[in-house]
Each structure stands twice: as C-alpha cells, then as structure tokens.
C-alpha cells in the first residue's frame, strides 16, 4: 500500500513538472522590445522567446531564476513555467528592455 501511494505521489509530481500539451506561447524580440511585453500562461505552459532582431538579446528573469543567455538573430529559447506567479524579466544586453510573464495556477 505504501509503495502504491509513493508511486502515485511520484506520478503526480512528474505530471506537475512536465510541460503541458498546449502549444508554447510565443514572445518575439524585435526593435529592442519584447512583443507582446506581457503574456499570461497556465502553470506548466511553455513560453518561447524568438529573436527576430538584428542584434543579440537575452530573456533573463529579474530574480535570476531563468535565463535564455545570448540569442543571436533567428535563435529561440523555450522555458516551462511550473509555478504560479508574476515574473518580470529583461534583456541583460539591453537593460531598458522589460517584459512580464504571468503564470496562473491550475488548468
């Protein structure tokens, strides 16, 4: 019985951490801006940042919890947001560039 409970708990944890089946929300980087500047997703959803600009950029959480590192023109980076909350982010190469990801709990 105990083993079964542990197995179920592990499965729940795995499902919670796994990306959702929904398509990733896309944030474009162009003209030194995140477009759109704010997106809202559900916990487990993914957000893909695509650098459409002719300059290098990053998408970096203000609290340093995640970081795309350098993206050249045409490169993209995807991150899954597991926990609910509002996360501000910026480009470390161009600190005047700011964006926000709002993560709502549940499905």
């Amino acid at each position: 019985m105990r083993t079964a409970l542990l197995g179920a708990a592990a499965l729940v944890a795995l499902l919670a951490a796994a990306p959702s089946a929904r398509p990733a929300t896309v944030v474009h980087i162009r003209d030194d801006a995140f477009v759109p500047p704010s997106v809202t997703v559900r916990a487990g959803d993914q957000v893909t940042f695509i650098n459409d600009d002719d300059d290098a950029h990053t998408a970096t959480a203000d609290d340093a919890s995640w970081d795309s590192e350098g993206l050249n023109q045409g490169q993209k980076w995807t991150h899954a947001f597991a926990k609910a909350g509002k996360i501000a982010y910026h480009c470390t190469v161009h600190p005047m560039m700011h964006g926000t990801v709002v993560v709502r709990s549940g499905s």
Binding site: A56, T58, D67, E69, G70, T92
Partner: peptide, 10 residues
Amino acid sequence: GEHDVIGVEG
C-alpha cells in the same frame, strides 16, 4: 563589455 558577461558563464 555587457556582451562579455551574458549569463552565469559569461
């Protein structure tokens, strides 16, 4: 410069 210190590894 700022391009030399990107991310944790920069």
